[in-house]
């Protein structure tokens, strides 16, 4: 119904930016065909900070990889501006959890410039945009430094700058702060929100931390344990870092944790 309409519809301003439409994802291990997610549907509007939240093994990272174009759904499709996504591309830049996502043979500036230069943006413009992005993540002092001399948090900032400088339609982040210590993680979350406030990008953020989801997200898609299905969508537009201690925040966190950890699926 919805689907048949979508195929013929021309992109309009009312369409969501990204539509994940009944997506079932499977991957092969040497002796099993594993279903990671089952008929997952959600939409992402321009300017959203959508968080995919779920227990480990629920396929949230797999969904993100499907949006990035690394994995083809066996059922359903993922659309960007109403066009079916067939492969990875620079319109959906991704920030990974691992620190080794930076190219060790390029300095910070070179790393941020690289995706732009290979996509035909002129050297001078790429440099200006890169410097601007590096400034926004507060690493201007480290422009001329190789990645191996940076701390984990700084590496992640460079990766964010590299993705942002490309001005992608969506910024995909796969548990980008999971490998950081708690203090750095909190600071990075604040910085990300600040950045969103300044630049206004669209973000899809994967995490397994309820607190992080509430702080970073404007909307949370809660996924059930393996195989992942959409359990709930929750709005948390106004919850920033300052709300951590409010009863409202705690109540919402409790509600989500009940969805994640109770055996019986919640109906509400």
């Amino acid at each position: 119904m919805n689907e048949t309409l979508a195929i013929n519809a021309a992109p309009s301003a009312l369409d969501p930016l990204v539509r994940v439409n009944g997506v079932t994802l499977q991957y092969k291990t040497p002796d099993h065909l594993v279903t990671a997610t089952y008929r997952v549907t959600f939409e992402i509007d321009a300017g959203d900070r959508l968080v995919l939240l779920g227990p480990s093994g629920c396929g949230k990272s797999t969904i993100l990889k499907a949006i990035a174009g690394f994995i083809k759904p066996v059922e359903g499709d993922v659309r960007l501006r109403n066009k079916i996504i067939t492969g990875p591309g620079p319109d959906r830049m991704m920030v990974f959890q691992e620190f080794d996502q930076l190219l060790p043979w390029k300095k910070v500036l070179g790393n941020v410039m690289y995706p732009m230069t290979i996509n035909g943006i002129s050297e001078s413009e790429a440099k200006a945009r890169a410097l601007d992005a590096i400034d926004k993540v507060k690493l201007s002092k480290f422009v001329d430094v190789y990645p191996h001399m940076l701390s984990g948090g700084m590496k992640q900032r460079v990766a964010i700058a590299r993705a942002m400088a490309m001005k992608p339609d969506v910024l995909l982040m796969d548990e980008p702060y999971a490998a950081l210590d708690a203090l750095t993680r909190r600071k990075m979350q604040d910085e990300l929100l600040q950045l969103w406030d300044e630049v206004g990008f669209t973000l899809v953020f994967v995490t397994h931390s309820i607190e992080e989801a509430l702080v970073v997200g404007s909307r949370i898609v809660v996924l059930s344990p393996h195989p992942g299905q959409v359990n709930a969508e929750v709005n948390c537009q106004h919850m920033g870092q300052d709300f951590r201690d409010t009863p409202e925040f705690q109540a919402l966190a409790k509600r989500i944790s009940r969805m994640l950890f109770d055996d019986a699926p919640t109906a509400s």
Binding site: A68, F70, G87, P88, G89, P90, R92, M93, M94, F96, E98, D100, Q101, L103, Y114, P115, I118, N119
Partner: peptide, 21 residues
């Protein structure tokens, strides 16, 4: 590492350009 390969592919590199880049 897979991460580095995937990073390269999100930049839009594939085939011989991925090998060289």
């Amino acid at each position: 590492s897979d991460t580095l390969r995937m990073a390269g592919r999100t930049f839009g590199l594939r085939g011989l350009r991925l090998v060289i880049g």
